[in-house]
Design a protein around this nucleic acid. Structure first.
Length: 243
DNA sequence: TCCCAGGCTCTCT
DNA sequence: AGAGAGCATGGG
Protein backbone atom coordinates (compact mmCIF):
# COMPACT_ATOMS: atom_id res chain seq x y z
CA UNK A 1 0.00 0.00 0.00
CA UNK A 2 1.23 3.55 -0.75
CA UNK A 3 2.36 5.84 2.10
CA UNK A 4 2.07 9.65 2.19
CA UNK A 5 5.41 10.13 0.44
CA UNK A 6 4.27 8.05 -2.52
CA UNK A 7 6.32 5.02 -1.57
CA UNK A 8 4.93 1.53 -1.54
CA UNK A 9 5.01 -0.35 1.76
CA UNK A 10 4.49 -4.07 1.90
CA UNK A 11 5.14 -7.16 3.94
CA UNK A 12 6.13 -10.56 2.60
CA UNK A 13 8.25 -13.42 3.85
CA UNK A 14 8.13 -11.84 7.31
CA UNK A 15 9.89 -8.69 6.14
CA UNK A 16 8.81 -5.12 5.63
CA UNK A 17 9.83 -3.64 2.31
CA UNK A 18 9.61 -0.05 1.11
CA UNK A 19 9.77 0.75 -2.58
CA UNK A 20 10.13 4.14 -4.20
CA UNK A 21 11.19 5.77 -7.45
CA UNK A 22 14.31 7.92 -7.68
CA UNK A 23 16.00 9.18 -10.84
CA UNK A 24 13.74 7.01 -12.95
CA UNK A 25 14.91 3.92 -11.08
CA UNK A 26 12.93 1.66 -8.79
CA UNK A 27 14.58 1.65 -5.37
CA UNK A 28 14.14 -0.94 -2.63
CA UNK A 29 14.63 0.40 0.91
CA UNK A 30 15.09 -1.37 4.24
CA UNK A 31 16.64 -4.43 2.69
CA UNK A 32 19.97 -6.00 1.81
CA UNK A 33 21.53 -7.46 -1.29
CA UNK A 34 21.25 -10.83 0.34
CA UNK A 35 17.49 -10.47 0.83
CA UNK A 36 17.11 -9.10 -2.67
CA UNK A 37 18.79 -12.11 -4.18
CA UNK A 38 17.13 -14.73 -2.02
CA UNK A 39 13.64 -13.20 -1.73
CA UNK A 40 12.62 -10.09 -3.68
CA UNK A 41 14.15 -11.07 -7.00
CA UNK A 42 11.93 -14.10 -7.13
CA UNK A 43 8.95 -12.35 -5.47
CA UNK A 44 8.80 -9.75 -8.24
CA UNK A 45 9.58 -12.30 -10.97
CA UNK A 46 12.59 -10.26 -12.06
CA UNK A 47 14.20 -12.96 -14.18
CA UNK A 48 11.23 -13.39 -16.48
CA UNK A 49 11.40 -11.59 -19.81
CA UNK A 50 7.98 -9.98 -20.07
CA UNK A 51 8.91 -8.05 -23.21
CA UNK A 52 9.49 -11.29 -25.03
CA UNK A 53 6.15 -12.67 -23.85
CA UNK A 54 4.32 -9.53 -24.96
CA UNK A 55 6.02 -9.72 -28.33
CA UNK A 56 4.98 -13.32 -28.79
CA UNK A 57 1.34 -12.90 -27.82
CA UNK A 58 1.08 -9.71 -29.89
CA UNK A 59 0.73 -11.92 -32.95
CA UNK A 60 -2.90 -11.84 -31.86
CA UNK A 61 -4.36 -8.35 -32.31
CA UNK A 62 -6.63 -8.43 -29.27
CA UNK A 63 -3.80 -9.60 -27.03
CA UNK A 64 -1.57 -6.92 -28.52
CA UNK A 65 -4.02 -4.25 -27.39
CA UNK A 66 -4.72 -5.86 -24.03
CA UNK A 67 -1.06 -6.31 -23.12
CA UNK A 68 -0.08 -2.82 -24.25
CA UNK A 69 -2.65 -1.40 -21.81
CA UNK A 70 -0.98 -3.19 -18.90
CA UNK A 71 2.57 -3.92 -19.97
CA UNK A 72 3.96 -3.28 -16.48
CA UNK A 73 1.98 -6.04 -14.78
CA UNK A 74 4.07 -8.77 -13.15
CA UNK A 75 3.01 -12.01 -11.53
CA UNK A 76 3.98 -11.90 -7.86
CA UNK A 77 5.38 -15.08 -6.43
CA UNK A 78 3.91 -15.05 -2.96
CA UNK A 79 4.39 -17.66 -0.30
CA UNK A 80 2.14 -20.63 -1.12
CA UNK A 81 0.12 -20.55 2.09
CA UNK A 82 -0.39 -16.79 1.89
CA UNK A 83 -1.65 -17.03 -1.67
CA UNK A 84 -3.92 -19.98 -0.92
CA UNK A 85 -5.45 -18.38 2.17
CA UNK A 86 -5.86 -14.98 0.51
CA UNK A 87 -7.70 -16.39 -2.49
CA UNK A 88 -9.99 -18.41 -0.25
CA UNK A 89 -10.93 -15.09 1.33
CA UNK A 90 -11.42 -13.47 -2.07
CA UNK A 91 -14.33 -15.69 -3.14
CA UNK A 92 -17.66 -13.96 -3.69
CA UNK A 93 -16.17 -10.83 -2.17
CA UNK A 94 -15.09 -7.35 -3.25
CA UNK A 95 -11.54 -6.07 -3.26
CA UNK A 96 -11.74 -3.42 -0.50
CA UNK A 97 -13.31 -5.96 1.81
CA UNK A 98 -10.79 -8.66 0.87
CA UNK A 99 -8.02 -6.27 1.87
CA UNK A 100 -9.74 -5.48 5.16
CA UNK A 101 -10.13 -9.13 6.11
CA UNK A 102 -6.51 -9.89 5.25
CA UNK A 103 -5.34 -6.83 7.25
CA UNK A 104 -7.30 -8.02 10.28
CA UNK A 105 -5.98 -11.55 9.80
CA UNK A 106 -2.40 -10.29 9.95
CA UNK A 107 -3.04 -7.89 12.84
CA UNK A 108 -4.76 -10.54 14.94
CA UNK A 109 -2.67 -13.60 14.17
CA UNK A 110 0.57 -12.44 12.55
CA UNK A 111 3.80 -11.24 14.15
CA UNK A 112 4.30 -7.56 14.87
CA UNK A 113 7.30 -6.59 12.77
CA UNK A 114 7.28 -2.97 13.92
CA UNK A 115 5.47 -1.07 11.19
CA UNK A 116 3.52 -4.01 9.87
CA UNK A 117 2.34 -7.53 10.57
CA UNK A 118 3.43 -10.75 8.94
CA UNK A 119 0.96 -13.15 7.37
CA UNK A 120 0.02 -15.76 9.98
CA UNK A 121 1.24 -19.31 9.48
CA UNK A 122 -1.02 -22.25 8.76
CA UNK A 123 0.23 -23.95 11.92
CA UNK A 124 -0.67 -20.94 14.04
CA UNK A 125 -4.16 -20.68 12.56
CA UNK A 126 -4.76 -24.41 12.77
CA UNK A 127 -5.13 -24.08 16.55
CA UNK A 128 -7.91 -21.49 16.22
CA UNK A 129 -11.65 -22.04 16.44
CA UNK A 130 -14.34 -20.40 14.32
CA UNK A 131 -15.05 -18.04 17.23
CA UNK A 132 -11.39 -17.04 17.36
CA UNK A 133 -11.71 -15.85 13.76
CA UNK A 134 -14.78 -13.69 14.50
CA UNK A 135 -12.74 -10.43 14.57
CA UNK A 136 -11.93 -10.97 10.89
CA UNK A 137 -15.62 -10.66 9.92
CA UNK A 138 -14.91 -13.05 7.07
CA UNK A 139 -18.40 -14.55 7.13
CA UNK A 140 -18.91 -18.04 5.78
CA UNK A 141 -15.23 -18.16 4.73
CA UNK A 142 -14.03 -18.63 8.32
CA UNK A 143 -14.55 -22.38 8.26
CA UNK A 144 -12.80 -22.57 4.90
CA UNK A 145 -9.77 -20.74 6.33
CA UNK A 146 -9.66 -23.18 9.23
CA UNK A 147 -10.02 -26.25 7.06
CA UNK A 148 -7.18 -25.01 4.86
CA UNK A 149 -4.96 -24.16 7.84
CA UNK A 150 -5.54 -27.56 9.43
CA UNK A 151 -4.94 -29.57 6.26
CA UNK A 152 -1.81 -27.59 5.40
CA UNK A 153 -0.49 -27.77 8.96
CA UNK A 154 -1.07 -31.53 9.03
CA UNK A 155 0.79 -32.01 5.78
CA UNK A 156 -2.36 -33.28 4.06
CA UNK A 157 -1.68 -30.99 1.11
CA UNK A 158 1.36 -31.92 -0.94
CA UNK A 159 3.01 -28.57 -1.76
CA UNK A 160 5.76 -30.29 -3.72
CA UNK A 161 3.11 -31.78 -6.01
CA UNK A 162 1.51 -28.35 -6.37
CA UNK A 163 4.83 -26.81 -7.32
CA UNK A 164 6.20 -29.41 -9.70
CA UNK A 165 3.53 -32.01 -10.40
CA UNK A 166 1.06 -32.32 -13.23
CA UNK A 167 -1.09 -29.20 -13.25
CA UNK A 168 -4.39 -31.11 -13.12
CA UNK A 169 -3.11 -33.18 -10.19
CA UNK A 170 -2.02 -29.99 -8.46
CA UNK A 171 -5.52 -28.54 -8.83
CA UNK A 172 -7.07 -31.66 -7.35
CA UNK A 173 -4.64 -31.56 -4.46
CA UNK A 174 -5.67 -28.05 -3.46
CA UNK A 175 -9.35 -28.84 -4.00
CA UNK A 176 -9.13 -31.33 -1.17
CA UNK A 177 -9.69 -28.24 0.97
CA UNK A 178 -13.30 -27.26 1.65
CA UNK A 179 -13.79 -23.83 0.11
CA UNK A 180 -11.25 -24.34 -2.66
CA UNK A 181 -12.69 -24.85 -6.15
CA UNK A 182 -11.16 -24.49 -9.61
CA UNK A 183 -10.70 -20.73 -9.51
CA UNK A 184 -9.13 -20.49 -6.06
CA UNK A 185 -6.91 -23.47 -6.86
CA UNK A 186 -5.72 -21.87 -10.09
CA UNK A 187 -5.04 -18.52 -8.41
CA UNK A 188 -3.04 -20.26 -5.71
CA UNK A 189 -1.05 -22.19 -8.29
CA UNK A 190 -0.38 -19.05 -10.32
CA UNK A 191 0.53 -16.63 -7.53
CA UNK A 192 1.78 -19.00 -4.85
CA UNK A 193 3.40 -21.86 -6.69
CA UNK A 194 4.77 -20.09 -9.75
CA UNK A 195 2.64 -22.10 -12.19
CA UNK A 196 2.16 -19.66 -15.05
CA UNK A 197 0.29 -22.25 -17.09
CA UNK A 198 -2.60 -21.99 -14.62
CA UNK A 199 -5.46 -19.92 -16.02
CA UNK A 200 -7.91 -18.74 -13.35
CA UNK A 201 -11.38 -18.15 -14.78
CA UNK A 202 -13.35 -15.64 -12.77
CA UNK A 203 -16.54 -13.97 -13.98
CA UNK A 204 -14.62 -11.24 -15.80
CA UNK A 205 -12.39 -13.68 -17.64
CA UNK A 206 -15.33 -15.86 -18.60
CA UNK A 207 -17.14 -12.89 -20.10
CA UNK A 208 -14.00 -11.62 -21.82
CA UNK A 209 -13.12 -15.02 -23.24
CA UNK A 210 -16.53 -15.31 -24.87
CA UNK A 211 -16.56 -11.75 -26.16
CA UNK A 212 -12.96 -11.49 -27.32
CA UNK A 213 -11.89 -14.99 -28.30
CA UNK A 214 -15.07 -16.99 -28.82
CA UNK A 215 -14.13 -19.05 -25.77
CA UNK A 216 -10.69 -20.24 -26.88
CA UNK A 217 -7.36 -18.80 -25.79
CA UNK A 218 -5.17 -18.06 -28.85
CA UNK A 219 -2.46 -20.68 -29.38
CA UNK A 220 0.39 -18.18 -29.00
CA UNK A 221 -0.81 -17.45 -25.44
CA UNK A 222 -1.30 -20.96 -24.06
CA UNK A 223 2.19 -21.38 -22.63
CA UNK A 224 1.89 -18.05 -20.78
CA UNK A 225 -1.77 -18.51 -19.84
CA UNK A 226 -1.53 -17.13 -16.32
CA UNK A 227 0.28 -13.98 -17.39
CA UNK A 228 -2.06 -13.43 -20.30
CA UNK A 229 -4.96 -13.87 -17.90
CA UNK A 230 -3.77 -10.78 -16.08
CA UNK A 231 -3.64 -8.71 -19.26
CA UNK A 232 -7.13 -9.85 -20.25
CA UNK A 233 -8.50 -9.23 -16.78
CA UNK A 234 -7.09 -5.72 -16.64
CA UNK A 235 -8.29 -4.97 -20.14
CA UNK A 236 -11.77 -6.29 -19.43
CA UNK A 237 -12.15 -4.26 -16.26
CA UNK A 238 -10.65 -0.97 -17.40
CA UNK A 239 -12.47 -0.86 -20.74
CA UNK A 240 -15.77 -2.09 -19.27
CA UNK A 241 -16.31 -4.66 -21.99
CA UNK A 242 -19.82 -4.98 -23.38
CA UNK A 243 -21.34 -8.25 -22.28
C1' DT B 1 -31.99 1.30 0.46
C1' DC B 2 -30.79 -2.39 -2.40
C1' DC B 3 -27.60 -4.88 -5.32
C1' DC B 4 -23.69 -7.43 -5.60
C1' DA B 5 -18.76 -8.98 -4.97
C1' DG B 6 -12.04 -11.85 -8.96
C1' DG B 7 -16.98 -18.75 -5.87
C1' DC B 8 -18.11 -22.64 -3.42
C1' DT B 9 -21.04 -26.15 -1.25
C1' DC B 10 -25.10 -28.47 -1.01
C1' DT B 11 -29.26 -30.18 -2.89
C1' DC B 12 -32.28 -31.51 -6.27
C1' DT B 13 -33.15 -33.17 -10.76
C1' DA C 1 -23.36 -34.10 -14.53
C1' DG C 2 -25.69 -29.96 -14.55
C1' DA C 3 -28.51 -26.18 -12.67
C1' DG C 4 -29.77 -23.20 -8.88
C1' DA C 5 -30.35 -21.52 -4.14
C1' DG C 6 -27.96 -19.92 -0.22
C1' DC C 7 -24.19 -18.13 1.95
C1' DA C 8 -21.85 -13.55 5.81
C1' DT C 9 -20.55 -9.15 5.38
C1' DG C 10 -20.31 -4.52 3.97
C1' DG C 11 -18.87 -1.30 -0.21
C1' DG C 12 -20.96 1.67 -3.60
Amino acid sequence: KPDDAGNWLGVAFGRILKIGVADNNIVLYNTSEEDYLSIWKSYFDIDRNYMEIINNISRNDVLKTASSCASGIRILKQEPWEALCSFIISQNNNIPRIKGIIDRLCENFGDNLGGGFSFPTAVGLSNCTIEDLAPLRSGFRARYILDAAQKVANGDIDFELCKNGDIAEAQKELMKICGVGQKVADCSLLFGFGRIEAFPKDVWIKRAMTTLFDGELPECAVQYAGIVQQYIFHYARTTKLEI
